[in-house]
Amino acid sequence: MKTGASVFPALILLVMTSSLARADAAAGQAAFESSGCQSCHYTQGPATEKTIADQLAKKGPELWYAGSKFQRPWLETWLADPQPIRPMKFNSVMEPNPGGHAVLSADQAGPVADYLMSLRSDMVVDGAVKVKKKNLKGKLIFIKKMPCSGCHQFPTKKKFSGGLSGPSLIGAGERLNPDWILAYLREPKVFKPVKMMPVFVGVLSDKDMKNVAAHVATFK
């Protein structure tokens, strides 16, 4: 009787919180749609781009696997105070990123983050990447063997370094899910069938990919 009495309220609480989260995601979806976000972002997978023209026609990055790609705290903060991620304008080689992304109010950012976090890809294996303080093998790949650094900015002791054509990886440790980084390297066609970044499947081993993902996950 005693245990029953304490389990029961706990159960109610559990049911309530999970349905609350769902209610928030639904409210977030409504806010996403009424704010016109889907005019630039698609939220339905799988990816359908086949040609360079298909990719260039997109006005913003696809969000249909946002819940597997991003970390929830980063996402909510960014939605309310978006700062440029790509040094160059999306889909442009030469034009700098003008910034000025749509901003959500603080009370909309939470529900929209809940909604986006509900969009998941089952290609992302939870816990596949073990993140430690350092991954020297991954670092060597990143700056030397297969220089990701040629196209992506990353933090260094001095400040930062790296190329400008890809999304900046400064702060990637807070922004990206390490398991998604690995999935993106393993299954590039699933997430972005046509992109400026080379396919590394068959170039880097699975171990290399895990190491480089773990290294990127240390970026502050």
Partner: peptide, 25 residues
């Protein structure tokens, strides 16, 4: 193809001056 994949380093006119070629390159 060149504009999409190669210009980021080799430049839009192929002159070796794409946006990735910063002082760090």
């Amino acid at each position: 193809l060149f504009g999409f994949y190669c210009a980021q380093c080799h430049g839009t006119e192929g002159e070796g001056d794409g946006p990735n070629v910063t002082g760090d390159f």
